[in-house]
Simulated scan of single mutants.
Amino acid sequence: MSEPSAPLRNYRFIFLAAAVVAGACGVGWAVGRFRPNPEPVVRSPETTAADGRRGEVLFQVHCASCHGPDGQGDGPSAAALKPPPRDFAARPWRFPVTPESIRRVTTDGIPGTAMAAFGAALSPADLDTLTMHVHRLATNQPTRTNQPTVEETLLHEAGFVDLRGTTPPPLIVSDAAGKMVRLSDFQGRVALVHIWGISCTHCLKAMPRLIDLESAFAGKGLVVLHVCADADDVKDAQALAEKTVPGVRVFADAAGVGLARFEVQTLPTVWLIGPDGQVIGRTTGAQDWAAQAVRKLIEHWLPNREAR
């Protein structure tokens, strides 16, 4: 018998391979069809209780010093914090009272407050466990509704963290001409301390708006102090700012100690200081300085009450 031709051998191989694949698929279908479905994972009461205990331990280690053992904002460190730590039962919150929101705040922290970011300090499993414990504290007890004062409402609507009742750190800065200025020199006026950086786009965009805001209250007791946080030479900062706002006067803290005390973690950072020399509030990041809410906030604390 003669050998089959090469094309015929190729066709036989293709048919054989197809049959093998079809058979394998059929076997797989049959196994899957008749294999019993896996039982759903059910967390036992013991596992749930263990997670609850773990969440309580994590809370006592990382949170109770400020928020108190039961989340009522009465921890041993609470009295020294501005703004004070959250009482989980108090409403309203600035974000929804959900596990997702609580986990996000626990992970990222809240800039401008004592709420630190724990994303790098806790494993994902511990973050989830701590989140659920905080959510239980916030929802398993009777809630209390706080009626905000006029000042609290003004600060919130303008995007400021309430820091009333605190004294600002000492700050001595100098301009490009070498003239020194102290923050205490502006007592009797409302001062906005605008802490900016030479590579911060938002900072440079804010300067014209802050100049406009200062001009709107000219002679009524508002001063804006532009303090550069990262220039090696204040003359370099002055030259850069001049390109954005001709005639603006900027300052720098050569020692850097003052700015460190002002807790500058995000640029721009703006502190609002009252006529009595006490802190009113602080805001970080991009801000709409032309907003009516900002003007209302400034007007409320101006020493010249006719501006109101």
Rank of each mutant, 00 (worst) to 15 (best):
P85R: 01
A50D: 08
V31N: 06
I110Y: 04
G219H: 00
T201R: 14
N146V: 15
Q72W: 09
A254F: 05
V21A: 12
E46H: 08
G256K: 13
R104V: 05
I172G: 06
T131R: 10
A241H: 05
D162P: 13
V193G: 00
T201Q: 13
L16N: 09
Q141W: 13
T201H: 15
P96E: 11
L204T: 03
I273Q: 12
N140G: 08
G71V: 02
P85Y: 00
I298C: 00
P208K: 07
A89W: 13
G109F: 04
L171Q: 02
V193E: 02
G258Y: 07
N10G: 12
G197T: 11
A64T: 06
R86G: 08
R209I: 04
L210E: 04
Q265Y: 07
L171K: 05
R33C: 07
V224I: 11
P7W: 06
H226M: 08
E100R: 15
P246M: 11
Q72F: 12
V190E: 00
M115R: 12
R249W: 05
A116F: 04
F13V: 14
G178Y: 01
P124N: 00
T167K: 14
G247Y: 11
P69Y: 00
Q278D: 11
V27C: 02
V245C: 09
Q141E: 14
A90V: 12
C63F: 05
T145M: 04
H133C: 05
W289K: 01
M115L: 14
T47S: 09
R182E: 04
Q147V: 07
R43C: 07
G28K: 09
A22V: 14
A252E: 04
Y11N: 08
F15Y: 10
F118N: 10
H62R: 06
P169A: 03
G165F: 04
A206C: 01
R164Y: 12
A158L: 06
S2W: 06
Q187I: 15
N37M: 14
P124I: 01
G55E: 10
A231S: 15
H67K: 06
A78H: 01
P169Y: 01
R53I: 07
A78L: 03
T47N: 07
L222D: 00
W29M: 09
F262G: 02
A89Y: 10
G71F: 01
D108A: 12
R91E: 15
E242F: 15
D253S: 15
V250E: 08
A231T: 11
R282S: 14
P84G: 11
A218H: 01
